[in-house]
Design a protein around this nucleic acid. Structure first.
Lengths: 256, 256
DNA sequence: GCAGTTCTGTGCGGTAACACACATAAATCA
DNA sequence: TGATTTATGTGTGTTACCGCACAGAACTGC
């Protein structure tokens, strides 16, 4: 596999992999396979069996649900802060959702067997994966809440910010149509909302590209959901020092 | 604690506890404490520290999110099929949501320390808890999707069925106001939707009581979300035989 | 029984998002 | 370059749900 960039590409671009103790990382490292993740690729289909877990580095994945009538809605996004395929270690090995590449890039994958082997050591890998899963649950919950109570415009802000946090630049390559299918709303709704944000000077865009100009402004404009998710990820995954403790300590993070 | 009924009340009324191997159950059993769970009681507040995990038997709990403006939305329900307090073993020990008793009854609780001790054995308890968590994730995801795409009436059907599945009878004690706060809609919306269902002959109700008359009819009327959740719970938690395997096997359930 | 409280029903105006239709503009490619 | 495809903008009418206001009905307690 590899790529032109593979010389400077490292698994450490993924925060979860980077958070592992050196010893653990060294053991996993030989089994990590760098793969391209082109926009639109379906990494798994609803109900399908997972052969790998995926650690995005420069790509962003989206967990989707496709309804019987064809309508879609994003449940959560997965970028370099996370991993795709938690059902491998949670049990069941499959979920009713679909995973698709939302922003093209690269990532690493690890075979199901290797993942389970590490997880079953009940060590740092397990603790890290479970914490991430907990953060993912918060993200999904907040999506549910946001879908219920907030306007399309607010949801667009939330989504832009969450996506931006996973990218190195402030520009995302993405049509309004695609954004609409993520949020599960009409394309026209996104046109209108994005138009408003552009008029206000928070973003600017052209065919297939959205650039965030005023990030702070966006953060003020978005609903509370963005911060809830962001802070929860930070709380659960920033303090990776405790991963080495033998028990998942009844630890209280004062920073909250 | 205990109650008048405690003589016939047993932890086995909770499906998770009942699914444990005898040896494991016997070890936990002395630490299980029967407690009343009266309607409306808040078992934990957003951001609070969890002192116990809760296994409902005859009660139903609701995971809620309360927004800054006071609006609420249910993220998921927890009945005798599940457990409240997964963040204890997932990590972090707290979540941004609130847990409240939605249907009064009883349940058992177990101290955080005892729960962690069992979980860290990395045996049947761990595997069962993780599988349940996976099922819970599906429930939350489906709530998100349903909030996005389905009408209040369909959501009411889904909610009634999910609640009914956790109760021994076909009647639930619950005001429309309360149902509305669960679904995160106006009370008047529930009045209208419930009125329609009553006119169609699917349910009947009086002040504070809703009785499901035609369950099959309801199942036809509801959106796909109900079945997705139900089947996923069945898939993940019915086959408890695999809990004893040393590794979470790469097991494929043909029944899907 | 009556008074007070708590639920439920209904009406009215407002609005956000919908579905559909079509115009314009920008990229792509022959 | 012009032709084609694809993305975005806009308009019109419809609908589901909202917020508010209030009437009536059903339980509760005295």
């Amino acid at each position: 596999m590899g790529s032109i960039k593979s010389a400077i590409h490292t698994p450490l671009l993924n925060h979860l992999l980077a958070a592992l103790p050196a010893e653990t990382f060294d053991r996993i490292s030989p089994h990590l396979e760098l793969i391209p993740m082109p926009l639109g690729e379906v990494l798994y289909e609803s109900g399908g069996q997972l052969q790998h877990v995926y650690f995005p580095t420069t790509s962003i994945l989206s967990l989707h649900y496709v309804m019987e009538n064809g309508a879609t809605a994003e449940i959560a996004g997965v970028g370099n802060e996370g991993v795709l395929g938690i059902s491998i270690f949670m049990g069941g090995n499959t979920t009713p959702s679909r995973a698709i590449v939302q922003t093209g890039g690269q990532g690493y994958r690890l075979k199901t067997r290797e993942m389970l082997e590490e997880f079953n050591r009940a060590g740092p890998v397990m603790r890290l994966m479970l914490r991430y899963t907990q953060a993912l649950i918060t993200q999904i919950s907040q999506t549910a809440v946001c879908n219920r109570h907030h306007s399309v415009e607010q949801q667009l802000c939330r989504w832009l910010l969450l996506t931006l946090d996973r990218l190195p630049s402030n520009e995302l390559t993405m049509t309004q149509e695609l954004v609409a299918s993520m949020l599960g709303v009409r394309r026209e709704g996104i046109t209108e909302a994005a138009g408003n944000l552009q008029r206000t000077g928070l973003i600017s865009y052209r065919r297939g590209h959205i650039t965030v100009i005023d990030r702070q402004g966006l953060e003020k404009y978005t609903c509370e959901c963005y911060n809830v998710v962001k802070q929860e990820f930070h709380r659960l995954l920033s303090d990776t020092g405790t991963l080495n403790s033998v028990a998942v300590k009844h630890k209280i993070h004062s920073a909250r």
